[in-house]
Write a protein that binds this DNA or RNA. Structure first.
Lengths: 98, 98
DNA sequence: CATGAATGTCGCTGATCGCATACATTTTAG
DNA sequence: CTAAAATGTATGCGATCAGCGACATTCATG
């Protein structure tokens, strides 16, 4: 699921927390932050600390991925495909006299 | 590409920035932050503001995605598949007398 | 309805932020 | 090698953070 703002991130964290039956206090303890901080991040606070956000995602077992120009692609989309040598194929089917 | 720490995020931002031939000052201007902040985030500063990180990713045209328990999956992996009614199939092939 | 849990808000505090500017160091070109 | 550009670092500043404890409010559940 894609997202681009702290507000969206907050909603996703809340969803994941509830899906695990955790309370804000539970998550706060698991992530090593104050309960108040969880309240803030779930509300989409944009000036929250980046590091604590990572801790929180880790505590929820969530993983982030990023993609775009200049970002390495995952191996699965880099599978090598045998590319036929067009000239050779054409040559093999050509009239020997042409 | 997956990542879980601010350090990794910093390296990815630097890579993307360079892939675009931008200088730290360029990116800072584009993202609406101070150049000093770019220096810090690229170095992996964990206490940086979340919101500015989003601005920076946006300025680079990068997109984030998250996944795990409780996070909605993209439509492509939610394709509906017709599930046969096993009982009906079995019934249709049963000996009428059984 | 009543009670306890979960959640949101407030004020306080020391600590840190991010910006600006200036300077030091490293990298890139010619 | 040298000069310029890019990058990293230091200081000073006002602004904000995050945690804490205490409440206020909302949600569950019997």
């Amino acid at each position: 699921m894609q997202f681009r703002t702290s507000l969206e991130l907050g909603l996703l964290i809340r969803r994941a927390r509830r899906a695990r039956g955790m309370t804000q206090a539970d998550l706060a303890r698991a992530a090593g932050v104050g309960r108040q901080w969880i309240v803030a991040i779930e509300a989409g606070k944009p000036r929250a600390e980046l590091g604590k956000a990572f801790q929180t995602l880790a505590a929820l077992g969530l993983s982030l991925s990023i993609h775009g120009e200049g970002i390495p692609e995952p191996p699965s989309s880099r599978v090598r495909i045998a590319v036929p040598d067009i000239e050779a194929v054409v040559g093999a089917h050509q009239d020997p006299e042409s």
